[in-house]
């Protein structure tokens, strides 16, 4: 399988990259990790006129906690998430999710930005972004703008990102004490697309009462599913098994899966519920200081 011809550009700044995207007016694609794009091109399902390789732009790969946020640069490799002691300690949901992404070789090139903005409902990081309340920073011809993850995902492969824009970083509210989060996923085989996945983030007060909750689901709808009603049902509660089961049921009803090789609709929906409950249990245990 051979990709069609294209022009190749390796800009050294975001502005230069945006100018190139603008020049090709939607017919250029951003090349980051390339592990979704290049196979699509080899299958000739994508035939961009030009590729804008953002891997050579300095200072676009980082992972740091400051000013009340965790900042992750767009070309940070998903494998780097797995290696981060900070994430393992304070944002274990991202460690969980990174471990689920494809395989270690793919993670050495696949980027956080690509996983977040590709718009594939099977990607693992979008659910985490929704659960964590992340904000995505975007650069475009009209300058930089920010988009809440909650506003970003529109449909399969359709996001709020314009073809002339580049996702530059994500910022996630800094982890608080008594915060816990987790990502759970099942697949037919490791590295396959999810049957279903669930991301959960909980902040509780000293008494164990939920202050903030975020729940989102992978692979059970045309796009990542933001289970807001499920999360809302937990806020203000000291979650019991019944509360968690109820939230999981609400998460289940938010899904809109399609049947495929990974299972029929009823199964996927049920799995979304099971995984939401498991992710919540794990998140709650972590919020209470467990692992």
């Amino acid at each position: 399988m051979i990709p069609p011809q294209f022009e190749y550009y390796a800009p050294s700044s975001v502005d230069e990259a945006v100018a190139l995207l603008r020049r090709f007016d939607g017919e250029a694609k951003v090349l980051a990790g390339g592990h979704s794009l290049i196979p699509l091109m080899k299958l000739r399902l994508a035939e961009p006129k030009a590729l804008v390789d953002i891997n050579r732009i300095p200072n676009l790969a980082y992972l740091r906690e400051e000013d009340g946020y965790l900042w992750i640069g767009a070309t940070t490799r998903t494998g780097d998430l797995l290696d981060s002691a900070l994430l393992r300690k304070s944002y274990p949901i991202l460690t969980d999710a990174a471990q689920e992404i494809a395989d270690p070789l793919v993670r050495n090139l696949g980027t956080v930005g690509g996983n977040v903005c590709h718009g594939d409902p099977g990607n693992d990081l979008p659910a985490c972004m929704l659960a964590l309340g992340a904000v995505l920073s975007v650069a475009g011809p009209a300058g930089p703008r920010e988009i809440a993850a909650a506003e970003f995902y529109r449909d399969t492969f359709v996001t709020a990102l314009e073809p002339t824009e580049i996702l530059t970083e994500v910022r996630i509210p800094k982890a608080r004490s008594h915060q816990g989060n987790a990502y759970q996923k099942i697949e037919k085989r490791v590295g396959d697309f999810a049957i279903a996945g669930a991301a959960a983030n909980l902040v509780v007060d000293a008494a164990g009462r939920v202050e903030t909750a975020g729940i989102a689901l992978t692979g059970v709808g045309p796009t990542v599913v933001h289970a807001t009603a499920a999360a809302a049902a937990l806020v203000g509660e000291v979650p019991s098994e019944t509360h968690l089961a109820n939230a999981a049921r609400l998460a289940e009803t938010a899904t809109d899966p399609s049947g495929d090789l990974r299972g029929p609709v009823a199964y996927k929906r049920a799995m979304a519920g099971v995984l939401a409950r498991r992710a919540l249990e794990r998140a709650l245990a972590r919020a209470k200081g467990g692992s």
Partner: peptide
């Protein structure tokens, strides 16, 4: 097709030579 790129194993069927 696994090779090392700057010491890390990657799948060279999904990397452009220019990269």
């Amino acid at each position: 097709c696994t090779v090392h790129l700057d010491g890390k194993p990657v799948k060279s069927c999904t990397v452009l030579a220019v990269q």
